[in-house]
Design a protein around this nucleic acid. Sequence first.
DNA 1: CATCACGCACTATTTAAAGTTACATGAAAC
DNA 2: GTTTCATGTAACTTTAAATAGTGCGTGATG
Lengths: 154, 154
Amino acid sequence: MKRDSRLSGVLHVLLHMAEQGAPMTSEQLAKAMQTHPVVIRRTLGGLRDAGFVHSEKGHGGGWTIAKPLADITMRDVYDAIGRPGLMAMGNRTEAPGCLVERAVNAALDTSFQEAEALLLARFAEVTLAELAADFHARMAARSPSPTTQEHIHG
Amino acid sequence: MKRDSRLSGVLHVLLHMAEQGAPMTSEQLAKAMQTHPVVIRRTLGGLRDAGFVHSEKGHGGGWTIAKPLADITMRDVYDAIGRPGLMAMGNRTEAPGCLVERAVNAALDTSFQEAEALLLARFAEVTLAELAADFHARMAARSPSPTTQEHIHG
DNA sequence: CATCACGCACTATTTAAAGTTACATGAAAC
DNA sequence: GTTTCATGTAACTTTAAATAGTGCGTGATG
């Protein structure tokens, strides 16, 4: 199957915005993500509506983080991009008349729902502040005294 | 993404085979599953190699269960069809140079791996015998004194 | 030896994500 | 005020993976 990478992508973009401080344009973010500016606008649109980021038009405009990183969890981001499906497998038929299939679906659904619940709970435990801290730890480990910018996409 | 329904489908087919007793041809199974005989052969191929089902050519041939249903778990079936990916989301890039992306991927991977482990553990707990029992319970609930065949795909 | 049924390689269709184009809107600079 | 920059959004195209389908080979039964 083709795996959805929007969550991964949005988290990536948000952390870059946070590192930058100043507003970043869709084009800048798209370059960092090796994707298209419109894709950035699309995915960040949900986060703007949810109040996690702010967008400004015109000269000097672009995207900025609207909340402290410690106040945004991966779960928040997941919700803001529209809660895409988490499980790669599904039932063959939604409302099957066949009782065999109903028994199979019931067993699978139970397991999938448990796994989804666990996943969402884990997402809710991780804030962007923690991800940023992890990033800085990795940067410190890579070289002794770097500046931040030198080590982004280098 | 497009969700994989092979596991659901194979479990369905296996239970029908078990109910039948006699060998069932790919065509019969395909009709019950509303799919193509070749799809049946493909998906059951892995289970044949793993020793869970047996296939016979020629007149009177077809597919039969090769082990007691109590000895086959959903996990066994999952393994036999090639362990398709369970999670619908993935990382944007596999081996990113960007440290921000590495931090994001690490956090996501941890969560996904936990969810997968839980899912596989649940699969391992459910045998086909239990699914068959659930099916019979559903059939009993639907009408007082049915025969098995009347209530498959009716 | 004719028929039945699986085995396999190959091609076609389908679906959702991702990419792209086009154009409208609004803000800042000059 | 008009030019430039940047977002907002709709529509369309491309792409990746599952699923569907075709054709032919092989072996077993009658």
